[in-house]
């Protein structure tokens, strides 16, 4: 079986491609080839040992879906792709749009629908959560800097300023909020989300929804070490039935199809979980779920090819991941290969 996977940007804010591949490779059922689809010729996963077998450059989403489809047709002619697993937030709308065309090419996916992607989007999350009675921090939206000024009386500090796809800053006063607005909007566009700051510990859940309202598996993790970008650099699996039940309920409310990451904060005062985000793909720490006994990436692959997949019912508590960086040494010829030909055979 030939599986194409994106998100090999294993950098300081890593994409989930490498751990997804690691999970699939560890599945006893998997035999085949892993094709890395990369946006940048220096994505580390393309050079790492035992990750992808071959890599192809693909165009950024901003180049348009026609360009992406053309490139995928070219790659498919050479590699006969069975399944594509996109793992990055910003490309999911495009791949969801292309899924029927990919199906015609013989390529399976296991992606959320357009509506599902929209309901959980950062600018719509508040309405979704309120509708289904999930606790959620209050949310304001600013589509321009003058909006932010108009909202100044409504904002209480500290507050969280978030981009529509990525990035978040805690602002302690209005000046910091303006600074964060400019920083995020210049990189990720508008609107900007101004989210109430809820003080407490952060907990995340990696999960897989079957698209019919059921959760195939879910693993909860407490962040032990958080980088200045807010990413977990170390985390531990925990056992909180309330959190897992809450995750199941959210996946049911969305009929979520595909992998996801649910982000929560446990309010220090009330001890209740507030839903911060629903990321529409596995997290970069998904290998912790695999190590704890739920191979969610391999399960997603099974669902994509309509193979029977049992639900996971438990996982090991107290498993820890600690992320590290490592300077991989390679040769100029490899960079030349991927830059000039757009292809790189690994190893």
């Amino acid at each position: 079986m030939n599986i194409a996977i994106t998100g090999l940007n294993n950098v300081d804010s890593p994409g989930p491609g490498v751990p997804v591949i690691r999970g699939i490779r560890e599945s006893k059922e998997f035999t085949g080839k892993i094709i890395g689809l990369i946006y940048d010729s220096l994505e580390p996963g393309a050079y790492m040992k035992d990750v992808s077998d071959i890599n192809y450059l693909i165009p950024y989403p901003s180049a348009g879906l026609d360009n992406l489809l053309e490139r995928l047709k070219f790659i498919n002619d050479k590699e006969k792709i069975d399944v594509i697993i996109p793992t990055l937030d910003s490309e999911l709308y495009g791949f969801a749009k292309l899924s029927s065309k990919l199906e015609e090419m013989g390529i399976k996916t296991f992606l959320p629908t357009f509506d599902q992607l929209n309901f959980r989007a950062k600018d719509k999350l508040f309405d979704f959560a309120v509708k289904h009675n999930f606790k959620v921090p209050k949310n304001l939206l600013a589509t321009s800097i003058s909006d932010l000024y108009k909202l100044s009386d409504e904002i209480t500090f500290p507050t969280v300023i978030k981009g529509i796809f990525y990035d978040a800053y805690i602002a302690h006063n209005f000046e910091e909020a303006v600074g964060a607005f400019h920083k995020i909007s210049s990189k990720w566009g508008l609107p900007i989300i101004i989210q109430e700051f809820v003080k407490g510990q952060e907990y995340n859940v990696a999960a897989l929804g079957d698209g019919n309202g059921d959760t195939v598996g879910a693993v909860a993790m407490k962040k032990l070490y958080i980088t200045d970008k807010g990413k977990a650099w170390a985390g531990i699996t925990i056992n909180d039935p309330i959190l897992i039940k809450l995750s199941d309920d959210i996946i049911k409310a969305l009929n979520w199809k595909s992998g996801c990451e649910l982000e929560f904060v446990k309010d220090e005062k009330s001890n209740e979980y507030y839903l911060l985000e629903i990321n529409p793909r596995f997290p970069a720490w998904v290998y912790l779920a695999v190590a704890a006994g739920q191979n969610l990436p391999a399960a997603l692959l099974n669902l994509a090819i309509s193979k029977d997949q049992q639900k996971f019912t438990s996982y090991e508590i107290g498993k820890i991941f600690i992320r590290y960086s490592w300077d991989l040494i390679t040769d100029i010829r490899k960079l030349e290969e991927i830059t000039v030909k757009g292809e790189l055979i690994n190893g």
Partner: peptide, 8 residues
């Protein structure tokens, strides 16, 4: 000491 429900 490890609290499995909070991860602390």
């Amino acid at each position: 000491l490890f609290s499995p429900s909070t991860g602390e």
